[in-house]
């Protein structure tokens, strides 16, 4: 476990990995968007608005995946005291919040022509909005806390507690009658025609690679700032 705990060793891997994730991610995302906008057929009921799926669904999955990552990293931070775990959890927060926001806004835009409304307070939409506010709370908490000591543990505990919302979002359309439709893609298969499903998975792959690259960038920035802080303190002491 602690083999990757050494920040110097992490940076040796992260530095070449960042562009190796970023560029394929960007290419796949652009390919998926162009494919989705120009080369997918009209849907039987929704018409052309079906194309919004190519940004809405990847953003939703990564918004939820981001918090899952925060929760796992927070457990690792609290249990194993892994020095990089807290850094990675905090690096996920802003990208995760942005993807959750993209999911909410594109969903709202999609809702108007398909459902006839921008917003309803059903289980799925409400729990997704809660996720966005949890992200805001986490960002405020982790900004207020220093990197060391008890304060960053408060953010970690918040990250773990907030994870209870993730299965709620996932199950909301099954537990409760909702305006949002039930899941199209489950472990047992998909009810999305392959004309949409293939570019959707390209988009998910592209968004995921970009997300990973963003997290690495933010981790590198945080580690560099920690080095600066140590250096400055030492210079002040001299």
């Amino acid at each position: 476990m602690h083999r990757f705990a050494n920040p110097a060793r992490f940076l040796r891997i992260a530095k070449p990995l960042t562009p190796a994730l970023f560029w394929p991610g960007l290419v796949l995302t652009l390919v998926a968007c162009i494919w989705g906008i120009f080369f997918t057929p009209t849907e039987r009921l929704m018409g052309d608005t079906v194309k919004i799926i190519f940004v809405h669904v990847p953003a939703a999955w990564l918004g939820m995946g981001g918090w899952t990552g925060i929760a796992i990293a927070s457990i690792v931070q609290l249990v194993w005291r892994h020095p990089l775990a807290g850094v990675s959890a905090r690096a996920i927060a802003v990208p995760g919040a942005t993807f959750a926001a993209i999911c909410l806004i594109t969903g709202s835009i999609w809702g108007r022509p398909t459902w006839g409304t921008w917003w309803v307070w059903d289980g799925r939409l409400t729990s997704m909005l809660v996720l966005f506010f949890l992200y805001l709370g986490y960002i405020a908490l982790s900004n207020a806390s220093s990197d060391k000591g008890d304060t960053s543990r408060v953010a970690a505990v918040f990250g773990i507690i907030g994870a209870i919302n993730i299965p709620i979002i996932n199950r909301s359309v099954i537990w409760w009658e909702s305006q949002h439709q039930k899941a199209s893609i489950t472990l047992s298969g998909s009810s999305i025609d392959s004309a949409y499903l293939v570019p959707l998975f390209v988009a998910v792959a592209g968004f995921s690679l970009l997300f990973s690259a963003l997290v690495l960038m933010r981790m590198r920035a945080a580690l560099a700032e920690m080095r600066i802080e140590v250096r400055m303190r030492r210079m002040a002491e001299d």
């Binding site: 052309d48 940004v55 993209i102 835009i109």
Partner: peptide
Amino acid sequence: FIIASFAVAGVGMTWLIVSS
């Protein structure tokens, strides 16, 4: 609606990439 959705996603991700 389609243009607005992709614009929102594009602006959000560009901001993330540039600022990070």
